[in-house]
Structure formats: structure tokens, C-alpha cells
């Protein structure tokens, strides 16, 4: 095929651009125009002066980082969210594959419905239920006790608390990922399995040789997309379950900033934190994108 000139390319692709137009316009209006709002991160913002509030440069940032406990919240955030991220891939993928291995389609569909249900419940509600179950006299400690283990202070011990958050978050959210991976699995041509079966491959071999490689692009896509959220360790969840006794390990950036609760400077400090988080996640996403592309040859975008 001969190389087309720029004008020719545009001409032959105008229909694609026409399709893109509505999305681009809407996104520009509702996502790009409001971006001027980030300047309040550099202002001593008050609502009446609006965006022409006095310029204070990096003061909101230095203020944040000079707070005695802010840096510890960054580490807590990273610890919790990196684990959530890792398990948030492994668990749904495993579950989707196992579900896919099930023979009965009816049961499979039924299970799929059940695991999505926690997604319909907000953390406020879920926290109430979990606090009952995880209490020192709650169901889980009862079970541990009857099995001869010592009871665990799931919510009150600083060393256990982050893990309680990680595991309960995975448990609540894995239905979402499972749905995505299952949808991807249905895209795999059954013929592949059939010929593998003919060749005498075991189920395990089929999973390793066919399912996982074909699922890889989706896995990488979902991982990189969730890296954008790495500094959001789950405000709703932690806010509803933590207590001063576990701030040492459980206080994350968002809960900390929320407690700052400053009526006046809230928006400015909030915007500063938002910008800080945006920067970090942008770097992470770009790095992971390049790595996936260069090292593994996956282009997700």
C-alpha cells in the first residue's frame, strides 16, 4: 500500500473524527474548562473572592508537609493501597477463572450475581456490619476461639488494622473485577479449548496455556487504570472503621485531610492534596504504561 499524504489520511478518516466529536466536546466542556479550579491550590482561597483569592504560591503544600503526621499518612496510604491493588488483581482473576471452570451455567450465573451484591452496599453500612462481625465478641473471634486460636483485635490493634482494611476491601470489591474478567473470558474462542482438549491437555494446562495469556491484556489494562487511584486508599471504608488507637498505621491522606476539616482553607488544602495525588498517580501510570509497552509488549491505550 502506498503511503497516503496527510490530507488524504484526514479525508479518509473524517468519519472517525465525526464520531469522536461529541465525546471530545463534552469532555472539553465538563472536564477541561473546570480545570482552572486547580489554581486555588496556590491561593489563600475564600469563597467570596473566588478564584482571584490572594496568591500564596506553595504555602498550602508546605503547610501540609510541615504537619507532624502528614508524612506518616503517605506511607500508610501507600502500604494499604499497594496491597489492595495487588490483591485486587489476583483475587478477581482467580475467581473469574474458577467460575469459568464451573460446569453448571446456572450455578455460575447465580454465583456471579451473589458476589456482585456487596458492591451495592456503601461502606457506611458495610462498616457497621463488619464492626459487629470483627468485634472481640463477634462472629469471627468466636470461630477463632472455638478452633483454639487467640482472639484478634481486628480493628483496635495498629499492626492488624491495615490488613483488616485490605482484606475487607478486596472481599467487598472483587465482584466488580470478576465481572470484567468474566466478560473478557467469554471473548475467548471455545474452539481453542476444544482443540487443547483433543490434544489431551488437562484443565490446569488449559488455564495456564490459554486462559491466562489471553486474559493478560485485560489484567494489565485494569492494573494500569487502577494505578491512577494508588493514593486513594479508600476514604469511605477507613473513615468509618478507624479510631485514634490505630492512627499510627491506619490514618491515610484522605482521612487526615478530612479531619483537618478547616471550613475556610478546606478547598485550598483539598485542592493542594488533589494536585499532589494527581502528580504522583500520573507519574505511576506513565511509568507502568511504558514498562508494559516496552518490556511486555502490551499497549493498553
Amino acid at each position: 500500500m502506498k503511503k497516503k499524504s496527510f490530507a488524504e489520511t484526514i479525508k479518509s478518516q473524517w468519519q472517525y473524527y465525526a464520531m469522536l466529536l461529541p465525546g471530545v466536546v463534552i469532555t472539553f466542556i465538563f472536564c477541561y474548562i473546570p480545570l482552572y479550579g486547580v489554581i486555588i491550590a496556590f491561593e489563600d482561597y475564600n469563597v467570596s473572592a473566588g478564584f482571584s483569592s490572594p496568591w500564596v504560591g506553595l504555602k498550602n503544600f508546605t503547610y501540609l508537609f510541615s504537619q507532624p503526621t502528614f508524612v506518616r499518612t503517605i506511607w500508610n496510604t501507600l502500604f494499604i493501597s499497594v496491597w489492595k491493588l495487588a490483591l485486587g488483581v489476583v483475587v478477581p482473576v482467580t475467581f473469574a477463572i474458577l467460575l469459568n471452570e464451573m460446569r453448571s451455567n446456572k450455578l455460575k450465573r447465580f454465583y456471579q450475581t451473589l458476589i456482585y451484591i456487596p458492591n451495592f452496599l456503601s461502606w457506611i453500612i458495610m462498616a457497621g456490619v463488619l464492626m459487629d462481625i470483627l468485634a472481640s465478641d463477634g462472629a469471627i473471634n468466636m470461630i477463632l476461639h472455638s478452633l483454639g486460636f487467640e482472639s484478634v483485635n481486628f480493628l483496635g490493634s495498629a499492626s492488624v488494622f491495615p490488613w483488616t482494611m485490605i482484606i475487607s476491601d478486596i472481599w467487598k470489591g472483587f465482584g466488580y473485577g470478576t465481572v470484567v474478567y468474566l466478560a473478557a473470558l467469554t471473548g475467548i474462542d471455545p474452539g481453542l479449548y476444544e482443540s487443547a482438549y483433543m490434544d489431551g491437555a488437562t484443565r490446569w494446562q488449559q488455564i495456564v496455556k490459554i486462559t491466562i495469556p489471553l486474559l493478560m491484556p485485560t489484567i494489565i489494562l485494569m492494573t494500569i487504570l487502577s494505578l491512577g487511584n494508588v493514593l486513594n486508599a479508600g476514604f469511605d471504608q477507613i473513615y468509618n472503621m478507624y479510631s485514634p488507637a490505630v492512627w499510627e498505621t491506619g490514618d491515610i491522606i484522605d482521612t487526615y485531610v478530612y479531619r483537618l476539616g478547616i471550613v475556610q482553607a478546606q478547598y485550598a488544602v483539598g485542592a493542594a492534596v488533589g494536585l499532589f495525588k494527581s502528580l504522583i498517580s500520573a507519574v505511576l501510570v506513565i511509568v507502568s504504561y511504558v514498562l508494559a509497552d516496552k518490556l511486555a509488549g502490551y499497549r493498553i491505550l
Binding site: Q67, P68, P244, A245, W247, R259, L260, I262
Partner: peptide, 21 residues
């Protein structure tokens, strides 16, 4: 007090809790 917001209270609550337990 408006600026420091809850930071000051946090220090006290966290510290008092440690002493009590």
C-alpha cells in the same frame, strides 16, 4: 485554630488514648 483544625485535637486524643491503655 481554624487553620490547624483538628490537628491539635488529634494530638491530644491519640496521646491520651495511649496513656489510658
Amino acid at each position: 485554630l481554624q487553620q490547624a483544625g483538628s490537628t491539635l485535637n488529634d494530638i491530644l486524643i491519640e496521646g491520651f488514648t495511649k496513656i489510658i491503655i
